[in-house]
Design a protein around this nucleic acid. Structure first.
Length: 442
RNA sequence: GCGGUAUUGGUGAAGGGGUUAACACACUGGUUUGUGGUACCAGCACGCAUGGGUUCGAGUCCCAUAUACCGCCCCA
């Protein structure tokens, strides 16, 4: 017997057939919907040069400093498994010169695939997890921001999710952000000693992160902190105002959260999160989708000045949410035909039968274990078979089979040849055809 | 990276130092020498995550490791 058993690596999961069915459904829903919005699939490598991520996400971000799966390969290249999707897509956009004038702008893509972060696993948080994400390059219009947000919501609604919270904020442009950063430091500095240890740390490295603190005392300060919305440059203000007008025009329900910050440093202007307070994902509000604008990122990775916007959806979290909200998810399809074969001499005919039935496009299964009829019928039942075709020595000799409707329990003798020549007719006009056959038999 | 809880068969689990590790579901076989969903009967953990230790004796106590879950950090 087994000498040694193995466990999957921490924070990974095996997706078994019952679940993969549901994942396919969600992924297909995304593909179809995103195609309606003219987003096409892009597939980029699961690993990239480390710098692709460190340059884009920010050297001080947690993702880069402590969550990256990075290593040196045999050619001593510094490689990292992708912790998020945007950086690789931007790299591909630049490397393939998709900024070229002959490309239709905005250039819209989506991706579906695994991401990796070295973290402590929890519900909906894995070391290998999966995201569906979209990116659109080369258009500054707030209409694109609005479309992207609307598409994310459209997607969740297509899956039957309704009670989600959409939070929107703006980080303005570089100038707005710099001014706000200073204002925030000026406000927080006098209270520095009273802040939590984590927030004292953040204060100068990334003061916006203090706004995100869950510490109750920190939140008291945050409540009275200056708002980014008061520090927008006229251009940033215009973008923000237009976005809100458009979201209103679409009738989208959203709330403005001026203290919302995102974990990756490349965002500017519009940022948004879609959240749920389902207990399936722990206490309080949990983000299942987040995104925003990242004008400047394409330049950062060596391309021309090009604006970009996108979002990512956490699939593990989404699946947990769909299960707990009891939204409709596909189940295993019932089997059309089960071929029960009795006796060794029917083995060959049984094989020909399932292949013949399958050639019509029906699903078919048979017994491979030489089991007794009772056990075979039990198996057929477990597979939710609609019909069982039984063939034993007697039927084989008479060139006929028994065709049983498992729902009604009715069984008739059918000439063997008719299974190969008239099966669709037998099933589609079941009552007449089977009645005639029954008459013939009498 | 820090803290807490847990880990017994295919599954849900009982057992909290002392003979053969409850019970239920599932599965397999039989009652029914060729027909499912019911009933009854039988079978089904040489072992209690892994490795050490304490003890006359350890799923049961101690230590380490692994994994899962929860909280923090952070995030999808």
């Amino acid at each position: 017997m087994a000498k040694q058993s193995f466990q999957k690596p921490k924070g990974t999961a095996d997706l078994l057939p019952g679940d993969s069915l549901k994942w396919h459904y969600v992924e297909e829903t995304a593909r179809l919907l995103f195609n309606n919005y003219q987003y096409n699939e892009i597939r980029t490598p699961l690993f990239e040069n480390f710098e692709v991520f460190s340059r884009s996400a920010g050297d001080t971000s947690d993702v880069v400093t402590k969550e990256m799966y990075d290593f040196h390969d045999k050619g001593d290249r510094h490689i990292a498994l992708r912790p998020e999707g945007t950086a690789g897509v931007v790299r591909a956009f630049v490397e393939n010169k998709l900024f070229a004038p002959e490309q239709v702008k905005p250039y819209k893509v989506f991706y579906i695939g695994p991401m990796f972060r070295y973290e402590r696993p929890q519900a909906g948080r894995m070391r290998q997890f999966h995201q569906i994400g979209v990116e659109a390059f080369g258009a500054d219009s707030p209409a694109l921001d609005a479309e992207v947000i609307a598409m994310a919501i459209d997607f969740f609604q297509s899956l039957g999710l309704t009670s989600l919270k959409v939070a929107v904020n703006t980080l303005g442009d570089a100038e707005s952000r710099a001014a706000y950063r200073q204002a925030l430091i000026d406000y927080l500095e006098p209270h520095a000693a009273e802040l939590s240890a984590d927030s004292q740390e953040r204060l100068h490295k990334n003061p916006l992160r203090v706004l995100d603190s869950k510490d109750a005392k920190d939140q008291a300060f945050v409540a009275n902190a200056p708002s980014i919305l008061d520090y927008l440059t006229p251009a940033a203000q215009t973008h923000w105002d237009k976005l809100k007008t458009m979201l209103d025009a679409l009738g989208l329900d959203y709330e403005i959260d001026a203290s919302m910050v995102r974990g990756l440093d490349y965002y500017n202007h519009t940022i948004f999160e879609i959240m749920t307070n389902s207990k399936a994902l722990g206490h309080g509000w949990t983000t299942i989708s987040g995104g925003g604008r990242y004008n400047g990122l394409v330049e950062e990775l060596g391309g021309p000045e090009t604006s970009g916007i996108g979002f990512g959806i956490g699939l593990e979290r989404l699946m947990l949410l769909l299960e707990s909200e009891q939204t409709p998810l596909p189940e295993v399809e019932p089997l059309d035909f089960y071929v029960a074969n009795i006796g060794e001499e029917t083995d060959v005919e049984a094989l020909k039968l399932v292949q013949g039935i399958r050639s019509y496009g029906y699903t078919a299964e048979r017994d491979y274990l030489d089991r007794k009829p009772k056990a075979q019928f039990k198996a057929a039942d477990r597979l939710n078979a609609l019909y069982v075709v039984t063939i034993g020595p007697d039927e084989l000799a008479n060139q006929e089979v028994n065709l049983k409707n498992m729902e009604t329990g009715e069984q008739v003798k059918v000439p063997l040849a008719k299974i190969y020549t008239e099966l669709p007719f037998l099933i589609e006009n079941e009552e007449d055809a089977l009645a005639n056959l029954a008459d013939d038999a009498e």
